[in-house]
């Protein structure tokens, strides 16, 4: 019988799932992904995690609890760094330890360290470590890894063409409501696990689309453009997400076809607190483009979210229509 590997539907699932899926399937393992986020998953996560952690981490706990009795292994790699010379949030590096010491009666955790800070070659090393759980043949692992990389590249190229990762992962078609007003182009900046978890952000993407909003995210941008724009910072950002978000935002600011920027952050996110602030300062100081920050946590009310989104989009439409009008006062 094939061994069952559980992949919690949280955090880097939204970035790497196509890679993991092909890799494990090529090695003959069966993949079990936790359910789509729901109230029960959120509640169980919030209950078992320390209060101070951010919402995505709490949700991850919920997804682990959702999976733990269904699988032989839990796949929770220790991500220290996913790009050369950069880090990610420290919580990712300690995640397997946090899970292990907070939740009881878990199946075996595959907690291979992924650390590409020194060299990109460490990615393959990590793949071999993970592969050893299922096969002792290095060639099999290598070929599985190659195929996994290919499906990851395919995923990335689809995203770059303008398909949202969330749509690919949930097999949902991104339909834009064209009936009402003219289309508005909005860029949303935020961690993948905040943007594409529809329960967590209260279906923000779907809501925007139904208002006739076309969405751009930083995952769709070209890596070279991001790196180029990053040169504007006096000191290089050392978080992978931070570099992409700052570079992406600086690029978006200069584009004529984007009508507004939304920054989606989760309460208590250390990286967001700095990145968002830097972007906001830059936008407000240099460019006349609408910018709003939406913060989510486990207490967020849906009505407040709707009001803000509607007001933001209304304001942009109103602005676009009356661009030439000069106010009579003020």
């Amino acid at each position: 019988m094939a061994k069952k590997v559980g992949i919690p539907r949280g955090l880097f699932y939204y970035q790497y799932y196509p890679l993991w899926k092909t890799f494990f399937e090529e090695l003959g393992a069966e993949i079990v992904v936790s359910d789509f986020t729901n109230k029960q998953i959120l509640d169980s996560g919030v209950k078992s995690c320390v209060d101070e952690a951010c919402l995505p981490v709490k949700l991850f706990y919920g997804h682990v609890l959702n999976l733990k009795d269904k699988v032989d292994y839990l796949f929770i790699p220790r991500f220290t760094s996913i790009s050369k010379g950069e880090y990610i949030c420290p919580k990712f590096g300690g995640l397997p330890d946090m899970i292990r010491h907070s939740l009881k009666e878990l199946p075996e955790i595959i907690d291979t360290e992924v650390n590409l800070r020194k060299s990109k070659k460490n990615a393959f090393k990590a793949a071999v470590d993970v592969g050893n759980y299922f096969s002792s043949d290095r060639h099999v692992i290598k070929s599985a890894y190659q195929k996994a990389l290919n499906s990851y590249r395919e995923f990335r190229s689809n995203v770059r063409k303008g398909v949202l990762p969330g749509d690919i992962l949930s097999k949902r078609r991104g339909v834009l409501n064209k009936s009402s007003d003219e289309t508005v182009n909005i860029a949303i900046i935020g961690h993948v696990y905040n943007l594409y978890d529809n329960y967590m952000n209260m279906d923000m993407i779907y809501k925007l689309r139904s208002m006739g909003v076309n969405i751009t995210t930083i995952e769709m941008l070209d890596g070279k453009v991001i790196d180029e724009k990053n040169q504007m910072l006096p000191k290089k950002m050392f978080w992978n997400f931070g570099r992409k978000a700052v570079g992406g935002a600086f690029h978006i600011m200069e584009r004529e076809d984007i009508d507004g920027i939304i920054y989606l952050m989760s309460f208590g996110c250390g990286v967001d607190s700095f990145v968002c602030d830097l972007i906001e300062r830059k936008v407000r100081n240099t460019k006349d483009i609408p910018f709003t920050v939406l913060t989510i946590d486990e207490h967020s009310g849906e009505a407040g979210m709707n009001t803000r989104l509607e007001a933001f989009i209304d304001m942009i439409r109103w602005r676009n229509r009356n661009e030439a009008d000069v106010p009579a006062y003020g």
Binding site: V50, A53, P90, K91, G93, G270, S273
Partner: peptide, 16 residues
């Protein structure tokens, strides 16, 4: 301090 990332990890491990 509130929202300190590394210490949140530590706090989760301390109960053990």
């Amino acid at each position: 301090p509130l929202t300190c990332m590394p210490e949140i990890v530590a706090e989760s491990i301390l109960p053990t």
